[in-house]
Design a protein around this nucleic acid. Structure first.
Length: 855
RNA sequence: GCGGGCGUGGCGGAAUCGGUAGACGCACAGGACUUAAAAUCCUGGGAUCGCAAGAUCGUGGGGGUUCAAGUCCCCCCGCCCGCACCA
């Protein structure tokens, strides 16, 4: 077989595309449709991984397809370049985050280019470019002006040995990952974006996102967590404290009669107040603080608490009293930071009650249970039912009881209805160097003073020291020293930088006018936004996507973004991960796939040690089960790598990287190339339609054009790939050498090449050239199908008896029920199978199926 | 713990509306070509029973709805993603 010479060819076409400016986005002409195709931009870790290849290959199919269909396409690329790894690398390798990051960007840019993605590189930027983050500082100032950003005290993980703030991922089992010290929590003044101002709008907006996966919308809905309920006031009877009442939030006021305790969050102001005079409470709160700030760890921890000794009265019955506890599972960030516990109706409350031997009184009776026998063991009943043990609520449904309880609370002045959101304001302060500096000055006399626009950008210092732990900006000998813009006295700069999620919350808009002196120019923004197809990992389903939706709204409200669209991303697609088998040697060390040798006796390392195969997992450095795209591109070519990640697995599911799958992809590329060379040597005949053979191939080709176009629209690339395999097989099978057949074969082959182009663009260009076509495929129109070839005159209908296929009929299209039934009952196989049975009923679905029910 | 998703041959998957389960690819087996091997080409593969015709079973497990269930409903199991300072 003719080997496809990928190395020389791929570079040639990449240069040709660049020379012809094929992928430079040009504003849509009047009447021209646009497509903004965007994949989530990468963090410049230094090397491309297979997840990137998949992500960008998916987007590239869409971009190339849209271009071939006459759309003006914007398909840009940039770098999510700020963040913690650069600082870790700086410490580890004794470099500077800046040089490390830009070096990585250069390396990854070359790798991306070698894959031949149809990107508009003229718009490239990195979020750590001063041109980018200075615009972000302007946005921050505008948000500050519009009260969309503010300062408040909030908890952070604190490493007492390193004297620095830890990210949640840096807290391992309650200890700092480097120092091993027990983590404490500290209160710090930090900057917050007022995302909760848009809670309702962000929630309502979801319903218009028809081209988003349902699961992502559900996750965002739950994250925002709108719930209707009540604030209920419990009066403390035995206190010397100033605070006389405890306010709790509940969505289930119907279960108030089942309340057996009230619980405060360890961070509740009253808890801290009580801790002052009670060492036991103080110790408990300190212990809770060691869990860190992650909601997951807090909720996973075994339920525990401490009795405060306080007693409150029940709002509905003053003679009933409840103990007040402090419990580790009550979150300060939600509701009022206090709850009432109804153990029968909430699993956490029940676990808590069992542990501390508190009363468990069921108040909701599930349907079909008897009131005098119903008991709660170790499973709370959270479903519907009828209220009992509940005084004036007895006999009501849960839904009715909620209403009645609410009006009673209002009547007694013991509570009010409220709407509560789970969504919290976005804490965006980071006590780190490698991020966008917050353009604020702290003045002793004037307080918080924004940096004047004329003084923007506030640039990061290039060289910082990581010798002392903590925030290098704070330690820098002179960076933070400045003068107050108002009073001209000595003042200091804010040393917090912004969360990198801020950088990625508006980059898609910046791509419309990447070199502008303003954050986003209105004409190009209106021409390109919203993003028509956004593609990235499902791990970003909530935070990144919600922050970007918030920013779009906030930017519009501040007048910094002038577009008609309300939402940044019209279409969203979440792709699956790239996985690989894991390998371990006899000493239990992970082994890289490149070091595993396969032989008849099993797997060994290159050194000959036996290797065992472990689970198939997401490619990761820690498990060493990665495959370097650069190695694959060198050996097989970019098209093979692209073809592999697009084959077989549906894009939203995980794809398992296998050597054999890769070889299959390589084989396909060679087969296409060989077949095209064969066809290219044949004479060119005008298209004719005479023989059945040629008709079939032409028909198959038209059908394939239609189906693949649809597959690409639906992002079902694995199906498109399967159809391309089929079409190639059909072309290869057509071996007759009469002019009709040769003409049909040429038509099918040319179509194949064009259909292939979004998936394996270099191969397509080479084939196109071999077939004698002068224009680049990248500039050629998508093939069209003709409906007249798709009309089916006859079809095969299965005939079932009792739901089991027993025969089939070849019939004309569109026959009516009676005729079909008659045909079916005359069928010899059916007559045979029906012997001894009595026909009960015949179901006929025209053009689909016939099912005979018989006994 | 809470929220979301996924589960189909030896393997990846197809079946888009409740209507022939297993398209297409990989791996495997047999054959052709070759001095031989590789590559390539052709053919065959869900399982069980059967010489065959064919029959029965079969979409993680258990129930249910329906003439008909991979698809809809309920329960369970396993794996994956997110949980607000990783990106």
């Amino acid at each position: 077989m003719t080997q496809y010479p990928h190395l020389s060819i791929e570079k040639k076409w990449q240069d040709a595309w660049e020379k012809n400016e094929c992928f430079i986005a040009k504003a849509p002409k009047p009447g021209q449709k646009k497509a903004y195709v965007l994949e989530m931009f990468p963090y410049p870790s230094g090397r491309l991984h297979m997840g990137h290849v998949r992500n960008y290959a998916l987007g590239d199919v869409v971009a190339r397809y849209k271009r071939a269909n006459g759309y003006a396409v914007l398909h840009p690329m940039g770098w999510d370049a700020f963040g913690l790894p650069a600082e870790n690398a700086a410490i580890k390798h004794n470099t500077q985050p800046k040089s490390w990051t830009y070096k990585n960007i250069s390396a990854m840019r070359e790798q991306l280019k070698s894959l031949g993605f149809s990107l508009d590189w003229s718009r490239e930027f990195a979020t750590c470019d001063p041109e980018y983050y200075s615009q972000q500082q302007k946005i921050f100032l505008k948000f500050f002006e519009n009260d969309l950003v503010y300062r408040k005290s909030s908890r952070v993980n604190w490493d007492p040995v390193e004297n620095s703030v830890l990210a949640n991922e840096q807290v391992v089992d309650g200890r700092g990952w480097r120092s091993g010290a027990l983590v404490e929590t500290r209160q710090l003044n930090q900057w917050f974006f007022r995302i909760t101002k848009y809670s309702t709008d962000l929630l309502d907006g979801l319903s218009e996102l028809d081209n988003w996966p349902e699961k992502v919308k559900t996750m965002q809905t739950n994250w925002i967590g709108k719930s209707h309920g009540a604030k209920v006031c419990f009066t403390i009877t035995n206190t010397s404290q100033k605070q006389q009442n405890i306010e709790v939030f509940t969505t289930r006021p119907d279960t108030l009669f089942g309340a057996s305790f009230v619980a405060l969050s360890p961070e509740h102001p009253l808890s801290s107040e009580l801790a002052k005079n009670n060492p036991k409470i103080d110790a408990f709160i300190r212990k809770c603080a060691q869990l860190g700030t992650s909601e997951e760890t807090i909720e996973r921890a075994e339920k525990s608490g401490v009795d405060t000794g306080l007693i409150v009265t029940h709002p509905f019955d003053k003679t009933k009293t409840l103990q007040v506890w402090i419990a580790n599972f009550v979150l300060m960030g939600y509701g009022t930071g206090a709850i009432f516990g109804c153990p029968a109706g909430d699993q956490r409350d029940l676990d808590f009650a069992r542990k501390y031997d508190l009363a468990v009184l069921p108040v909701v009776l599930p349907e079909g249970k008897s009131a005098d026998q119903y008991q709660i063991a170790n499973k709370a009943w959270t479903g519907t039912g009828t209220l009992f043990n509940s005084d004036f609520l007895n006999g009501l449904s849960v839904e009715e009881a909620i209403k009645v309880a609410l009006s009673k609370l209002k009547e007694l002045g013991a509570g009010e209805t409220t709407t509560q959101y789970r969504l919290r304001d976005w804490g965006a302060s980071r006590q780190r160097y490698w991020g966008c500096p917050i353009p604020i000055i702290h003045c002793h006399d004037c307080g918080i003073v924004p940096v004047p626009l004329a003084d923007i950008p506030v640039l990061l210092p290039d060289e910082v020291s990581f010798e002392t732990p903590g925030n290098p900006l704070d330690h820098h000998p002179n960076w933070k020293q400045t003068t107050c813009p108002k009073c001209k006295q000595k003042a200091v700069r804010e040393t917090d930088t912004l969360d990198t999620f801020v950088d990625s919350s508006w980059y898609f808009a910046r791509f419309c006018s990447p070199r502008s002196k303003d954050p986003v120019d209105s004409a190009p923004a209106n021409a390109w936004l919203p993003v028509d197809q956004y593609i990235g990992g499902v791990e970003h389903a909530v935070m990144h996507l919600l922050y970007a939706r918030f920013f779009t709204r906030a930017l519009k409200d501040c007048g910094l973004l002038d577009i008609k669209a309300d939402e940044p991303f019209d279409g969203l697609f979440t792709q699956g991960m790239v996985t690989h088998e894991t390998y371990k040697d006899s000493s239990g060390n992970w082994v890289e796939p490149v070091n595993v040798l396969r032989s008849d006796t099993g797997l060994t390392t290159k050194a000959g040690k036996p290797v065992t195969v472990g689970a198939i997992e997401k490619m990761s450095k820690s498990k060493l089960n990665t495959v370097d795209p650069a190695v694959i591109i060198e050996k097989y070519g970019a098209d093979v790598a692209r073809w592999f990640v697009l084959s077989d697995s549906p894009p939203d599911r995980d794809v398992q990287w296998t050597e054999s799958g890769l070889e299959g992809a390589a084989r396909f590329v060679s087969r296409v190339w060989a077949e095209v060379l064969r066809v290219s040597k044949e004479p060119v005949f005008p298209e004719q339609e005479t023989t059945d053979l040629s008709k079939n191939l032409i028909k198959t080709t038209h059908k394939t054009i239609k189906l693949i176009s649809q597959d690409i629209e639906d992002l079902g690339f694995n199906r498109a790939v399967a159809r391309l395999y089929s079409l190639l097989n059909d072309i290869k099978k057509a071996t007759d050498n009469d002019p009709e057949q040769i003409a049909a074969r040429r038509f099918a082959t040319e179509s194949l090449v064009l259909l292939l182009a979004p998936f394996a663009p270099h191969l397509a260009e080479s084939c196109w050239e071999a077939l004698g076509c002068k224009q680049l495929v990248a500039m050629t129109k998508w093939p069209e199908f003709d409906e007249k070839w798709l009309e089916e005159k006859t079809l095969i209908i299965p005939v079932q008896i009792n739901g089991k296929r027993r025969s089939q009929l070849s019939v004309a299209f569109g026959l009516d029920k009676a005729v079909l039934q008659e045909h079916a009952l005359k069928d010899p196989d059916i007559i045979k199978s029906l012997s001894g049975l009595k026909i009960v009923k015949v179901i006929v679905v025209p053009d689909r199926i016939i099912n005979i029910v018989a006994k």
